[in-house]
Design a protein around this nucleic acid. Sequence first.
DNA 1: TTGAAAGCGCTAACAG
DNA 2: CTGTTAGCGCTTTCAA
Lengths: 347, 347
Amino acid sequence: MPKRAALKDIAQKVGVSTALVSYVLNNQEEEKRVGKEIAARIRQAAADLNYTPNQIARSLKTSKTHTIGVIVADIHYRFTSGVTKAIEAACQQLNYTVIYGSSNEDPAKFARLVHLLVDRQVDGLIIVPVMDCKKEIDYLHRHEIPFVLIDRIPPNVEANIISIDNVKAAHRSALHLAKTGHRRIAFVSYQSGLLNLAERKNGYLAALAEAGLSPDPALIKEIAGRRPADGVTDRVTDEVKQAIDDLLALSPACDSIFFATDTLAVEGLRHINALHIPVPERLGIVSFDESEAFELFYCPITRGRQPLADIGRIAVDTLIDTMHHPTTKKKVLLGTEFIIGKSCGET
Amino acid sequence: MPKRAALKDIAQKVGVSTALVSYVLNNQEEEKRVGKEIAARIRQAAADLNYTPNQIARSLKTSKTHTIGVIVADIHYRFTSGVTKAIEAACQQLNYTVIYGSSNEDPAKFARLVHLLVDRQVDGLIIVPVMDCKKEIDYLHRHEIPFVLIDRIPPNVEANIISIDNVKAAHRSALHLAKTGHRRIAFVSYQSGLLNLAERKNGYLAALAEAGLSPDPALIKEIAGRRPADGVTDRVTDEVKQAIDDLLALSPACDSIFFATDTLAVEGLRHINALHIPVPERLGIVSFDESEAFELFYCPITRGRQPLADIGRIAVDTLIDTMHHPTTKKKVLLGTEFIIGKSCGET
DNA sequence: TTGAAAGCGCTAACAG
DNA sequence: CTGTTAGCGCTTTCAA
């Protein structure tokens, strides 16, 4: 096939300079007062030659790529697919291209991604932070690259953050268990340096207090390490099993579990199923987030749902805003929906 | 922060020309016989200045972006996350960046994405085709842009294709139902112009024949239209419900269902659950692909599993190969794993 | 061994 | 209103 047409070719064909062509094709004919008739001829020639601008040349000149980078934790999370879908939709409208990368919860991979994307000169970043990412956050600040963090709140950083109100959501979940008659409510979470899970624990504790239940350290299980990459889920799986076994052996008996994340709930329910523990009769269950499995479980799981589409959309809005006003520092906390299933013995 | 260092800055600092710097930093010092000592000084200066090459300038010059485009159908499919994870891993090793886009099964969006990615000058494409994508495929051929199709096989196209052996996999699934004592085996699929589902139907029919069962058109349900974008799943959901109601009303009774895709199975099981139809006692179930829900269902679903990681990895290999040998036309059919659960009354 | 210089395709300041 | 021109940062040919 013939080489791609360039501005020069159009200019030649019409018999004008490349400058005029550039003006017209960038719709600056008004400001630059390009002749009406010539503008039309330029457009015609562009169409004839099937012209499409060379984005790379344009980027080199303007040092804008019209591309944003997105770093997610793991593409298998429901959170990821929900949010990225919204990000993609929003960016398409704004004519931005998106480049993704997954950290797989690995700080080293995360750091590599940040540098890769900055190297590719993305105009901005939407990031799900991992643990120990302070260095990269600082790097972005130093280089004045606009970014917004979503989902998780790392300690001690100043940044645009879009997240949910974890305290409130967790409070609602735990309180629901109390209201459905549960007294020995367990909390199963990950150990983590990120604030989200700490906030969820706070919400849980607040709900206990409000319901007049006293907290019991034995009811709080914090799994070490996040679900590791691909297939190597065994360690977490084993720890979840152990945690549930421990809880079931407690006396006075644990009568319900609040899972702090969907992945933990899925792992946990698998084990609970294998043990033939009836839900909700023997064990009430509440989870965070969504999973296809929650609805198909013999007893639909009651859960708090994050507004994933909103998070994605607002993240893009905020990023674009920051790109224009670099000093913006927004912290948006969104509300969650509470989906009542039957896993707490609801009537 | 200070402006980014460029080749020129290094050249200036060391007191040589940019050409030398370029050679050294691209490890061509051997061929270009650059002086050892000077090479060392150049590297040192590069490190001092924190030099990172400007990929955009490089791309403009070489017209290679070291980027590949991936067009998936829907990020919510298990297929998508499984395959993209492998693609990303493979590309990272090869130092390629990946740009994703979702067609959401919409031919118009698909076409837009192809052009967007070509505009961005990706070096190659990995594509999950949608219906009616012949025009874009031709476009890629005409422009000599390397690409490989995965998952689905559009009719009448010449291209690199990585897929599974659908006939064989479906045959195995349906035969399993026959072997576990089912005689009235239904096949629930989508209507589609793509060959995959046609092949799955062929496999199903072949299994019936092998088991001495006569095919019954009433047992074959083909849902119109794929699951549409975001939330608007109602039409498909309704049709699946209707299909299952119809099957259950049949006489002689339908005793089992083979779902041609995981999404259909999830929809179907939801309805079967709501109707309190016991699996496998009243209805044996086999599905294709994976879902978190299949393991958590009270009765683990027997299913064929696609080698998602292999598909992704081989797609990248094939693409790279094609980029070097544009005439390559590979058609790779991979085998599937068959996971035996309890949903067919297995003992 | 090294350097000078010509672009890749586009934008935008400046000059007519 | 329209044209000229100087780069953006890099690769690579050609000459020294």
